[in-house]
Design a binder for these strands. Sequence first.
DNA 1: AATAAGTAGATTGTCGACATTGTACAAAGG
DNA 2: CCTTTGTACAATGTCGACAATCTACTTATT
Lengths: 239, 239
Amino acid sequence: MAVFKPATSNLLHIEVINAIINAIVSGELKPGDHIIEQHIAQEMQISRAPVREAIRELAAQDIIQFIPRKGAYVAPLDPRNIEGIYLLRSYLEGLAARLAAPRLTETDLNEMYLLNYQMGEASLKNNVDTFINLDLQFHDFICQHCEHSQLKKMIDGVQLQTKLFMNMSKWHLAAHSELHREMNAHEPILEALRARNQEEAEMKMREHIVMAGNRLLEYLVDNKSSKNSKKEDTETVKN
Amino acid sequence: MAVFKPATSNLLHIEVINAIINAIVSGELKPGDHIIEQHIAQEMQISRAPVREAIRELAAQDIIQFIPRKGAYVAPLDPRNIEGIYLLRSYLEGLAARLAAPRLTETDLNEMYLLNYQMGEASLKNNVDTFINLDLQFHDFICQHCEHSQLKKMIDGVQLQTKLFMNMSKWHLAAHSELHREMNAHEPILEALRARNQEEAEMKMREHIVMAGNRLLEYLVDNKSSKNSKKEDTETVKN
DNA sequence: AATAAGTAGATTGTCGACATTGTACAAAGG
DNA sequence: CCTTTGTACAATGTCGACAATCTACTTATT
């Protein structure tokens, strides 16, 4: 039942960050939920100090929203923001692709090709978790090779939110077998990178991300009518 | 002598953030300097807790570099990074200009026109401080009207570094009366915004920032030969 | 004299407690 | 019955102290 297990690392606040992220990704913490320092501290059997640091760091990445003297809340997912976040991501990762293009070795490109191939396999088997994981790896790979520490950090931040979005739409993708629509989405990007065409790599990356955002948005508006946006439902928390 | 005066706000870590930023901008803290929590805490007559929070927040923005169990250091300014930072800034602010274009009212545009006019006056008088301040206000204005909280936060972060760069090159601008080169730099952007032309606004903003970065870089390489890059000069600090 | 081990000081990491602020519920008054 | 005030509780903000770690210097050994 306890989500936050006792910590093991010698850098406690890192453990807390991972624990909170896992809790959000797994759905244990939902958007809008109030994050209470003391509760996490008790569950992980540590003091509030590292918890505070973790919360501040996540707040800096907009993973959670922080209101002075009120507390931290899991960032609410306003569908109106999703378009903006994906637009931002498209610019950032587009730039990353541009910078990575001349820096990727043949080995790097082969590795990316493998990821792409495995994604094809996963989509045929309708294996959503594997597919999402590979997708993230592909984007991460480019980000890791742009050699721009700040850009990398920014992308890491928005990708975390992307991970949440993907998790939200996971069951939908699986249920409708829509993985095939995304199957070859990375191919144009990979081609451009292989050709060392910076302009093209940036543009294809941007298009890809904007399209992914649009599909996510489509899905969300489809499901909004059948579901209440306000969820003041029964909390199992009692303390 | 003491840089960090006793705090007055009811949110201590905010005070500390401002104090550290001021110390960096004013040159009291130089790139590479070790920031020691206890020292700031003592000078500001507060405990280390809010100092730690401030440091973590600034580290998240890459204003300062944080190494676990070693401490916080004012982010070193590697000229090789400057190009990257200005490129990143050009993308971010370009996007901000695009988003702001349809949202700016006539009043907003007039306000920006005024800023631009005042910059012209300042450049004629070779008043560098005023010029830089107005320049930052202009960019900030657009950033404030893009209605994208994350983008805004990211831009705030890189603009802080820009502020440092500008301060470094300040005396150079003044000495060589090169302000006139920048005088009308904002006009194309303003025109595009007035015409509500998103594409044009983004492009002009990007060009402007990339050019500004190039000029800064020129200046830095010019001065690198006459000046030692390592400055282990006499510190007034004694503790 | 040069290198290595050891030691003292300084700095960060963590902790538990108290102070301050915000919230929700209850009581009193209209 | 509704509104307002007061009070108790809960959560955050801040603090001082101790523990773990790193750094620089001293000392010992070859």
